[in-house]
């Protein structure tokens, strides 16, 4: 495996560990509701600091259930990931189909070779 690929995999592993460890180590156990959103906690804190405060506007549309809400969040992530993946697919293909010259790191050559390859992709 190439060294750069190894580093990339280690980065992914580190991100997974950072997200999983708080749950595995039970860092939310001291809370009434473990791993609630920070924004919900902030709402509680606001009420503590100013018990009379009433939110003066409510969302125009609220997902009717937690399931629908998480579905919409998943949709948001999927849309974003789709575009990012498409971009990498296009770039990779262009680079593969481009003449060898595109690989030379020298600025003018790289830039010039990148430009004509941009044509057929659109």
């Amino acid at each position: 495996m190439k060294r750069s690929t190894k580093i990339n995999l280690l980065i992914v592993l580190a991100v997974v560990l950072l997200a999983a460890l708080p749950v595995v180590l039970g860092m939310g156990d001291h809370k009434d509701e473990p791993f609630a959103g920070a924004d919900t906690q902030a709402e509680t804190a606001i009420t503590e600091n100013d018990p009379d405060y009433e939110p003066w506007f409510s969302p125009l549309y609220e997902p009717p259930s937690g399931e629908i809400e998480s579905g919409l969040f998943a949709l948001q992530a999927a849309l974003g990931a789709g575009v990012v993946g498409y971009m990498f697919g296009v770039k990779r293909t262009r680079r593969r189909l481009a003449p060898e010259a595109a690989d030379t790191p020298d600025e003018p050559v790289g830039a010039a070779a990148g430009a004509p390859a941009a044509g057929p992709g659109r």
Binding site: M27, F35, A38, Q41, V84
Partner: peptide, 15 residues
């Protein structure tokens, strides 16, 4: 878009 859709657990016991 992707990153702000991902609610991730953290060391403080919240997400």
């Amino acid at each position: 878009f992707v990153l702000s859709a991902l609610k991730i657990p953290s060391v403080t016991g919240s997400c």
